[in-house]
Design a protein around this nucleic acid. Structure first.
Lengths: 144, 144
DNA sequence: CTATTTTGTTTGTACATACAATCAAATTAA
DNA sequence: TTAATTTGATTGTATGTACAAACAAAATAG
């Protein structure tokens, strides 16, 4: 009575990782709704507040996105008046504006909300553990 | 000497899951290059071959994408002559064409190549384990 | 010191994906 | 049996993200 074999999906790390990505992105965007930002933008602001004048290159590395994607993120946040660029030679330094800094508590609250939502469903232990394993996996796989 | 606290990234399941998703998507697309398809399209064809006449609704569920996304996937594969639609009342049944079926071995080879690439970096044990945990996490989180 | 290479950023373009609205078929209720 | 609801699919639109090409500044080599 077993249907066709579909284990090629559930066994595939590409599929399972992206499936979880899509699922938790929905939860994350919902938790971040009060900020008016998606989580990646919120995290960019947190980085800029934590390290004023951080370069776009560093931001891209820390957020694990390509430089072109990062340019677009900063474009949008600049347009919203939440960060500003200072060009220094060939590098661009990013600073949170006062308006951006003013959002930091809202952003942190959204992060906490996000975390508490998924911890409620996964358990704190397991959630912590799997995040660590995901980091480890990314690092291994990025060793070309 | 510790820099600013950036654990909000590495502790956040939204961030870690999507980071891994981006990383492994690159590997997966590379492994699937010989098929001329991205992995999701390859998997759709595998599902259609395994269950001839599978409905779009079922495909969307199995692939964990929305119906609108699935419509677009089928559009493209139909355009490439790899699947065809048969409308049956309000549902659409999807069949692989001969051309689509002819690709199944190439697609399976790409899946094996993908798997062997990430297993080489993560170890077979760990790769298996983490895929299971990712599935479990998605299922838990999808319980609204 | 000029010429070359490298490095950081940006822009054009493309794709996967989602949501909301629409539409059409099917089911249920009156 | 008609009217209302539900369900599956599609379309318009928007966003995140990538890659490749272009560009400009900096570093290195001749």
């Amino acid at each position: 009575m077993s249907g066709p074999d579909e284990s090629f999906l559930t066994n595939c790390l590409f599929f399972t990782a992206n499936r979880l990505g899509r699922t938790i992105t929905k939860i994350a965007e919902d938790a971040f709704a009060p900020t008016g930002l998606t989580p990646m933008y919120g995290y960019l602001i947190r980085l800029a507040v934590g390290t004023p004048g951080i370069s776009q290159k560093e931001l891209a590395e820390k957020l694990s996105v390509t430089p072109s994607t990062l340019t677009r993120f900063v474009d949008k946040l600049e347009l919203k008046g939440l960060v500003e660029r200072k060009v220094q030679g060939k590098t661009v330094l990013v600073y949170a504006t006062a308006k951006g800094e003013g959002m930091i508590e809202t952003i942190k609250a959204a992060s906490r909300e996000l975390r508490s939502r998924y911890e409620a469903l996964l358990g704190k232990e397991f959630a912590d553990e799997i995040s660590k394993q995901l980091i480890f996996s990314s690092e291994q796989l990025e060793k070309q």
